[in-house]
Design a protein around this nucleic acid. Structure first.
Lengths: 150, 150
DNA sequence: GCACATTTAGTGTTAATACACTTAAATTTG
DNA sequence: CAAATTTAAGTGTATTAACACTAAATGTGC
């Protein structure tokens, strides 16, 4: 559905304002979807984000600050999120050898298994969003978003 | 900056996955900006969203559910947000004449003044995001986002 | 070496989200 | 008309975001 219909907007919007609102609205829509998908697995979207970041950094792992720098939501409190994941045995935390300020976080086998299950469930759902776009359109969309942030 | 650089991503992403991440990242970036802009005015982005919706609905006002249906973030708790705005005298709440379940919310003069101040401050800032896009590109971006949600 | 600033992780606190639930009024149905 | 259902608003609660702050380790300049 078009944004104007979704927001029941009456007044016409300027193109840039319309794009801005549409970005926020679409992201909120995605976040809501992701929340529901992840709910059954006992993790939240930011926690899922961390697990995927760590999965891309095996076997070395990452420091808390490195994780933060790679997260979608930069305002996340990584220390607390990592602690939650550790309590659920999805990640491991070990002090850094040389720099004792740092903590190296790695994904555990249980965490990897969880990611595979989530991936698998998504595949079954066929609910991967954005399927209406062609690959070329998806690339163009990403490019325009990059430009939007300039 | 491109998304891959922002997220320090190592592995290449599928186009749709890249678009998805870029939507979430750009929205988070916008939200952070908006948070900072609104902070000085004592309101949050969802509260600002409500004020603008109500400003577009003068003089009739809207019910709580109508507001919710027009909000960017559909999971907001409108009752509590409206109560916050009422305590700050930015909105007024009156019971509906015919249907006593409903409450009609309208923006106050103080609320309108606040919106004007915010608008003015943004204009001074020249920090309106998305200026790097042409109008045609902004329209294309909004169109692709509509299609993404299909 | 020592004072000073910087970096890294974590904490404290307020407010907002997410979701289920409750309450009350209106509408539908038998 | 009375009972059941639906709709609207609000509440309860646990979790998370947002921001400033602290504590400890490292780096820097003198």
């Amino acid at each position: 559905m078009k944004l104007e219909a979704e927001l029941k907007n009456t007044k016409p919007l300027q193109p840039r304002q319309r794009a801005l609102l549409n970005i926020l609205f679409t992201a909120s829509w995605l976040d809501c979807n992701q929340n529901r998908q992840l709910r059954g697995f006992g993790i939240t979207p930011p926690q899922y984000n961390i697990l995927r970041i760590l999965n891309g950094s095996v076997p070395k792992g990452l420091s808390v600050l490195d994780i933060k720098g790679r997260m979608i939501d930069r305002s996340s409190n990584v220390s607390r999120l990592v602690e939650k994941l550790r309590l659920a045995d999805f990640v491991e935390r070990v002090p850094h050898h040389e720099d004792r300020r740092m903590v190296v976080v790695t994904i555990s086998d249980k965490g990897k298994t969880l990611l595979q299950e989530i991936e698998h469930s998504r595949f079954l759902d066929e609910k991967m969003p954005g399927q209406a776009l062609t690959e070329a359109e998806a690339m163009e969309l990403a490019h325009l978003l990059d430009k939007f942030r300039e």
